[in-house]
Amino acid sequence: MSKGQRVGYVRVSSLDQNTARQLDGLDLDRIFEDHASGKDTHRPQLQELLRFVRDGDTVVVHSMDRLGRNVDELRTLVTDLNTRGVRVEFHREGLTFTGDRNPMNTLLLTLLGAVAEFLRAQILENQREGIAKAKQAGKYRGRKRALTPAQVQDLRRQVQAGAQKSALAREFGISRETLYTYLRSG
């Protein structure tokens, strides 16, 4: 196996979060950065990384939960990369997966992936319980709307006039998904 590139992958869940600490100080040839939930593998930069890496490359990820929060998808990603001759290193855990049929590596990947999946489910359950209690006490009003009613009218007017949706999302400071939500809601 020839020495390939060291390719980093970093992920945070939202645009206002910072990825700087994740692979800080590591010598990498290229970094792919997603600002998206880890609930599934439908992340643009992850998909680009999967197309980019070649036999002999090493993918470096800060921790397993940055690559995936679902044990099945995590195992599938690592297995797919290893089958293609790509090593996967998880920096925080100090683990490297090369495709060797090592029972300990399989156990650790499955176990730590399951822990990440469990923690994600626990966070969501706690969030639902907290919201339900706050609603019951009359204290929950939901998230503040990103746009005022006047801005929503302006947004819809510009879309009808043929303006590009991605440019409008940037102009209004919202994600494209939020833009589409506003367009569907009225």
Rank of each mutant, 00 (worst) to 15 (best):
S166P: 02
Q151S: 05
I123W: 01
A137P: 00
A163V: 04
L155T: 00
L124P: 12
E117M: 05
Q160V: 04
I174M: 03
Q127N: 13
Q122C: 10
R157F: 08
N126E: 12
Q153D: 15
A163S: 10
A167H: 02
G130E: 12
T148H: 03
S166M: 04
V159L: 04
K144S: 12
R141F: 14
Q158W: 00
G138P: 01
K144G: 05
R145T: 15
A132G: 05
R141M: 03
K133G: 02
Q151W: 01
G130N: 05
A137T: 08
K139W: 08
A137R: 10
L147A: 02
T181C: 08
G162D: 02
A121E: 10
Y180D: 14
L168G: 00
T148Y: 01
K135Q: 15
R120E: 09
A137N: 13
L179M: 01
R176K: 09
E117H: 11
R157T: 06
A150V: 13
Q164L: 07
L147C: 12
Q127M: 14
E117P: 09
K165T: 01
R128M: 06
A169N: 09
A137Y: 03
R156S: 00
Q151K: 09
V152R: 02
A132Y: 04
G138D: 13
R176H: 08
K144Y: 00
L147H: 01
Q136V: 08
T181D: 10
I123V: 15
L179G: 03
I174P: 14
D154T: 13
A146H: 06
A121V: 11
E171L: 09
Q122R: 10
Y182K: 05
L124H: 14
V152H: 02
A116S: 15
L179C: 05
T181S: 14
G142A: 13
S166D: 07
K135W: 02
Q153P: 07
Q136H: 08
L168A: 02
G173S: 07
T181E: 12
Q136N: 03
F172N: 02
L155I: 03
A163N: 07
A161I: 06
F118L: 09
L179N: 00
A121I: 07
L147V: 05
G138Y: 05
E177R: 13
A116V: 08
E171T: 13
R128E: 14
A116C: 11
R176Y: 01
K144M: 06
K165F: 09
